[in-house]
Design a binder for these strands. Structure first.
Lengths: 249, 249
DNA sequence: CGCCTGCTTGAACGCTATCAAAAAACGTGG
DNA sequence: CCACGTTTTTTGATAGCGTTCAAGCAGGCG
């Protein structure tokens, strides 16, 4: 397996993410405390499955670099992508609290992650009220995102749904430092988009093509570049949430 | 407004819900602690909106009796019901942590609820690691439920979706003591079902009719009775989660 | 070069929406 | 208890969005 795990001491106070705008600042003590909960760091390649539906997973992760996604399947193979994850996101909390995982997680690009052991992670609640609060905050924000996705799946047309998904991901990428001036692309295949929107691959393709004709996006082999975020927002009847600082664990 | 709020001291150790199977048992001290966080109890009538999208809401609630639901709307009026709530559910956590509410909550039947003031509620994290854990547990379980709904919205056909929703609600009602031998009905209009499934009212009606013809359900004026839970599960390719004890706050 | 994965396109079918209207159930006041 | 307005459920007909089937094309990689 092309996975590399390092078990040396993690120094959270030196974490690059903390220096980014977008994350709440944190005292040196708090950073030290978090360091104590971590059991290592790892990298993984595109396509790697970090969490599998139906299994017990003894780890949680914080994304440091790269994109990943969460999905759930029916027995006959139909699958629904539930959400995408970017640096700063905490992954696997459901499994830590509720035992068996009922979704899977896969890397969309090469990723770097911080690793928590489940049992040690759960002592956060005893050790620090602030961190416990942060965990809950992250869980609530995740739920809020799912609310938005559900509105989309249930009520928006194909075109609106596609526009929503793409601007949504655009702002997530932007705010978590995944875009640079030379690279502001969302790394997705159309087949993944189809599984996210609940549409067939063929119809997804035709819908994206129409967005491209309107000069809202450009498709470049397994990635999407956003040309006109405001235009997409208006197609989707959506506005991005305020960019308020979020906790990082 | 037909709402009655009582501000007398709440005695959580005497709460009827605690005596129900399905909830985790709790020490006398813990119950006393929770009592301290509560600021009252209230009743409300069918159709009352407890939480409105876009507003700040200074309260959280624990459902004691009755059914309610959460929804989100697009500007042109299309709305998506996100989830239904039953006794034991904690409501309004998102708003407490993330400021402005981005969904609404409405009573589906007359309800009785425990009230928490936002600011006092948030001190739970400092006062009790166990209760903080429970809050997070509830948030995670809610998210897991949304995952299931998303799979349904995105991947299941109309018939499968309807079957899923109805058994899902059947088990929720059953396990939270909302059904008695003389009344095991889910209090829903077909229009609400339509807004939950992301289908038109007409097509929802035709789909429910087919479920009724198969003797899986019976429709009785603004309510649905489940005749064959296993049958519905098999139509939906779904099995209810294990009935493990859940915390009550 | 050839294979594999991912994207594109056209045609036909069908599930679901929309339109339109009627029937049934419900609540309320007379 | 009945009349009457309102909400909810039911039904039929028509239209359309999205699916499925079936190829063909393009690009990356061994």
């Amino acid at each position: 397996m092309d996975t590399s795990v390092s078990h040396h001491m993690i120094r959270c106070d030196a974490c690059v993410l903390r220096r980014m705008s977008g994350f709440r600042s944190m005292s040196a003590e708090e950073a030290k405390l978090i360091s104590g909960f971590k059991s290592g760091e790892m990298r993984c390649e595109t396509g790697m499955t970090l969490i599998s539906e139906g299994t017990l997973n003894p780890y949680l992760y914080t994304v440091l670099e790269g994109w990943g996604f969460r999905y759930k399947s029916l027995e006959d193979g139909r699958r629904q992508i539930l959400n995408y994850h970017v640096p700063g996101d905490l992954i696997g909390l459901q499994g830590a609290l509720l035992q068996e995982m009922d979704h899977s997680f896969e890397a969309l690009t090469p990723m770097r992650l911080c690793i928590f052991e489940r049992s040690r992670f759960l002592t956060i609640f005893e050790k620090s009220a602030d961190l416990a609060f942060d965990v809950t905050w992250l869980a609530s924000r995740d739920e809020r995102i799912l609310d938005g996705h559900m509105l989309s799946l249930g009520q928006r047309t194909a075109m609106e749904r596609a526009a929503y998904l793409l601007v949504f991901l655009y702002y997530r990428g932007l705010r978590s430092g995944l875009f640079t001036s030379s690279n502001a692309q969302i790394p997705l295949s159309q087949s993944l988009i189809a599984d996210t929107l609940g549409l067939s691959l063929v119809h997804t393709n035709k819908t994206l093509k129409r967005l491209a004709q309107r000069k809202l996006i450009v498709w470049r082999g397994r990635a999407c570049e956003i040309l006109d975020p405001e235009g997409l927002c208006s197609v989707a009847e959506w506005t991005p949430p305020e960019a308020s600082p979020r906790p990082l664990i």
